[in-house]
């Protein structure tokens, strides 16, 4: 989002994409009700869901933004931070 400043990507599109890709984190929240309290299993499942959300978000933003291919890594890292924050609230 911060790095995809090429002109045709507005704030609403970013917000929409981030909101859509929160769905894997929501699924993880539901799943965590049934998972055991063991730390390693929860961390592994959280990592899978966060990577899923990050990949989806980066793909969507890159497809929306012009010239977004060269910013893919940067966009993916910003998405990764946001979803990791939400996952922290779920795990602990």
């Amino acid at each position: 989002m911060l790095a995809g400043r090429t002109g045709n990507l507005d704030l609403h599109t970013c917000t929409s994409v981030v909101g859509y890709c929160l769905l894997p984190v929501v699924i993880f929240s539901a799943l965590s009700l049934f998972l055991p309290v063991d730390g390693v299993i929860r961390l592994s499942v959280a990592a899978v869901f966060v990577l899923w959300a990050t990949r989806a978000s980066a793909g969507l933003v890159v497809s929306f933004a012009d010239g977004g291919d060269e910013h893919r890594g940067l966009i993916a890292y910003a998405s990764f931070l946001i979803y990791t924050l939400f996952s922290l609230l779920v795990i602990f």
Partner: peptide
């Protein structure tokens, strides 16, 4: 898709499941 005001921050929508 209006260019509008390109602000360098992103605001998240509130989570509908209300945790």
């Amino acid at each position: 898709s209006q260019p509008g005001v390109q602000q360098p921050q992103t605001s998240l929508p509130p989570n509908p499941f209300g945790s």
